[in-house]
């Protein structure tokens, strides 16, 4: 029967590994020339042993993230940054939303959506950021964010937000996820921006979708 049993343990990457698997080795491997070594290093960093190591790895991953061109490595780095759950890691991720690199921004948005419990405090900060584009990105994250307070945050946002683009983004998300609870804030928003036909249209649609 040509089904064969592996004669020994599956081949290990141990012999190919150039760096020891301690903290220093993982940091050095993050700069290895081969993407698979960098992916392994980034993945292993998720197993940080204590807060100091978590902070060290988060800083290294964030520093490397912007110059990493290999998509598969970036994806593992982003996953690890979210899994580390370290506040500095998550704030650093949020900072990446300020970059001009659209691909990286979109990857960060995706990554932040995947860990709602960990990223919720950062999202709240972003919703209050001085830069309107950052507030729009935060709203984009909320579009598929599994957190029970999403609607509440969006209602709060449109109740005081002055920027029409941010409001329009929030209304779009409420159109998809809102309930009757959103209606008073939507109606008030329509009164605040009578000169914006696009927003009026979006609000009317959201009111229709959130009707009983």
């Amino acid at each position: 029967m040509p089904l064969i049993k592996p004669g020994q343990t599956p081949p290990s990457d141990e012999e190919k590994r150039r760096w020891p698997r301690d903290a220093d080795g993982l940091l050095r491997a993050l700069d290895d020339s081969t993407p698979s070594a960098r992916r392994c290093s980034a993945r292993d960093m998720a197993n940080a042993e204590n807060d100091a190591q978590r902070a060290l790895f988060a800083a290294a991953l964030l520093a490397r993230l912007r110059s990493e061109h290999e998509v598969s490595v970036r994806e593992v780095m982003l996953t690890t940054l979210v899994r580390l759950g370290d506040i500095a890691a998550l704030s650093g991720l949020a900072d990446c939303l300020r970059t001009d690199d659209t691909t990286l921004r979109n990857e960060v948005i995706e990554a932040m959506r995947e860990a709602p419990a960990e990223t919720a405090p950062i999202i709240l900060e972003l919703l209050g950021d001085a830069e309107p584009s950052l507030r729009v990105f935060a709203v984009n994250i909320l579009e598929s964010f599994r957190h029970p307070d999403v609607e509440h945050w969006l209602i709060d946002l449109i109740s005081h937000e002055a920027n029409v683009n941010v409001c329009a983004s929030a209304v779009d998300v409420l159109c998809l996820t809102g309930s009757t609870a959103s209606r008073p804030a939507l109606l008030a928003l329509r009164q605040r921006f009578p000169e914006e036909p696009f927003l009026q249209f979006a609000i009317d649609l959201a009111l229709k979708r959130t009707a009983d």
Binding site: R43, A46, E75
Partner: peptide, 13 residues
């Protein structure tokens, strides 16, 4: 979600 993504990355390697 995040554990699923990590698993997918493990399979990739």
């Amino acid at each position: 979600d995040i554990s699923r993504k990590a698993a997918a990355e493990t399979f990739y390697d």
